[in-house]
Simulated scan of single mutants.
Amino acid sequence: MALAIFDLDETLIHGDCASLWSAQMVRLGWVDGESFLRRDKELMDAYGRGHLAMEDYMAFSLEPVAGRTPEEVEHLVEPWVEDVIEPIIYSDACTCIAAHRKHGDRILVISASGAHLVGPIAARLGIDEFLAIDLEVRNGVFTGNTVGTLTYREGKISRLLEWLDQEEENLEGASFYSDSRNDLPLLLKVDHPHVVNPDPVLREHAEQHGWPILSWR
């Protein structure tokens, strides 16, 4: 049994769940729509160029969640996953997950989005295990801060190594699927890197190194 590791945004789904949740928070009336979505786009454009400080994005995107209980947020995330996320899950991703599951591989999602979003989306994909950016809870409510190492760029490796140690697992024969240049550190760490609908920088690297390039729809 080997690990099959999947990035989430633009890999398993055709979109970025954090930005889609930002739009949902606008619909819920939690934020001023125009200015919030403009700032979200600016930060996500920086992510696409590999220039984002994830701490900045999380501080921005979690501000409307601060003071709300995990139960309140969970209650609103679940129907959002059904209505917004499920229609944009790549069917090819589901086929790939099923093939790994049939092979007996252990499946893990590792994402640079918040755990309050990643967990329910992974569950909708039938995946129980995930690593994501953890949110701080104090006195029963979200503070708007994160805790621990952020699962972004090299942080994905740090968190994964901690998880491997806890689970008495290893990376022998592991696969990793991602669309983003930001995941190059982890792609270089596994035996079987796969790039999915890659950005230009990742595509060039994959072509130079003979990595499989997948077009998922």
Score class of each variant (00 low, 15 high):
E34R: 12
C94G: 09
R68E: 08
G33N: 11
V31M: 11
V73P: 03
V77C: 05
P87E: 14
P64I: 09
E86K: 14
V73E: 01
Y90I: 08
E34A: 15
E82Y: 01
Y47G: 01
I88L: 09
E82F: 03
L43W: 04
W30R: 13
P87W: 13
I97R: 08
E82M: 02
I97T: 04
T95N: 11
E86D: 15
E55V: 11
H51P: 01
M58D: 03
V73H: 04
F36C: 03
R39K: 12
A98Q: 12
I88A: 13
Y57M: 06
L52G: 04
L43I: 05
S35F: 04
S35G: 03
D40W: 02
D56M: 01
A59T: 13
R39Y: 07
V77F: 12
M54Y: 07
D45C: 02
I97S: 03
S91M: 08
S91Q: 14
R68G: 04
E42G: 00
G50V: 01
M44H: 01
S61M: 10
E82S: 12
L52I: 04
W80P: 01
L76Y: 00
S91D: 15
M58K: 04
A59G: 12
K41H: 10
G50P: 00
D92V: 05
V77R: 06
F60G: 11
E78C: 01
E63Y: 05
E78Y: 02
H51S: 02
G50E: 00
D40P: 00
I89E: 06
M58Y: 07
L37H: 05
M54E: 07
L62P: 07
I97G: 11
D83S: 12
K41F: 10
F60T: 07
V73N: 00
L43V: 05
E42V: 08
C94Y: 00
E74Q: 11
I88F: 09
A66W: 13
T69W: 09
H51K: 00
A66L: 14
I88W: 11
L76I: 02
D92K: 14
S35A: 13
V65F: 05
I89G: 06
M54H: 00
I97M: 10
V65H: 06
C96L: 06
L52W: 02
I88Q: 08
W80Q: 04
D56S: 08
A59Y: 02
W30H: 15
R68Q: 13
E72P: 06
E86Q: 14
E34T: 13
L62F: 14
A98R: 10
R39Q: 14
R68V: 07
V77P: 06
S91I: 06
A53P: 00
K41Q: 13
S35D: 13
L52V: 03
I85F: 11
P64E: 09
C96S: 07
Y47V: 01
V31S: 08
E42S: 00
D83E: 10
P87K: 14
A59M: 06
G67M: 14
I85G: 05
V73I: 13
L62A: 14
I97Y: 07
P70D: 04
F60R: 10
E42N: 02
W30K: 11
E63A: 15
